[in-house]
Design a protein around this nucleic acid. Sequence first.
DNA 1: ATCCGGATCGCCT
DNA 2: GGCGATCCGGATG
Length: 219
Amino acid sequence: MSTRTARTTRRSPGDPIPASFYDRDTEQVARDLLGAVLRVDTSDGRASGRIVETEAYLGEHDAACHAAAGRTARTHWLYGPPGTAYVYFIYGMYWCFNAVTRAVDLPSAVLVRAIEPLEGVELMRERRGHPRRDQDLTNGPGKLCLALGITGEMNGFDLHDSPLEIVHGEPVPDDQVEVTPRIGITRAAAWPLRWYVRGSSFVSKAPTVRRGPRRRPQR
DNA sequence: ATCCGGATCGCCT
DNA sequence: GGCGATCCGGATG
């Protein structure tokens, strides 16, 4: 079956998520991006992963959001149209990837903090320097950008029509979704704006689970 | 399991 | 001039 003929299918796995998806409340977008697939094509090949952890950043009145500093050279694409990539440089050495939400001039975004590797796993291993476990390939915002090959050159890319896309995946039901405060910030640190897939071994900071004496994995 | 320092630099104050 | 929406390795308990 050709993948390009299914015009009538509303949401086929692998099809880019449309801009209208991002033009909603940022919290809802962050929640609904769980299960979607972040996919990057470079000259080295394709790499992709299932989104398992996100955070919402809510515009100029959110002290933790870069937009709190207003419109600057850095935040340019954060003010862009919904469904735009906002990629920024942090700590002198890492890139972080966001999907811009809401309409133009409402500078909000969803930070993707972790994915579960799908396509191009070997490519990701090479880019990440062959960590011991594949769980450490993409369990953090800087790590997943390294693994996928996301850099500042992709800042401003169109997420539904570019080498950097988010496509439909398998939706995650409510009973598998956890909400907590955001990680690694000092301002507005208590707001519950982080979403992740419960039980996923690919999240950046799994809850501290009490570990009993030797036991086989449950379920 | 948790805490800490070092690396490294663009951007805002 | 100082500080991050981070990561990693090493020390500590």
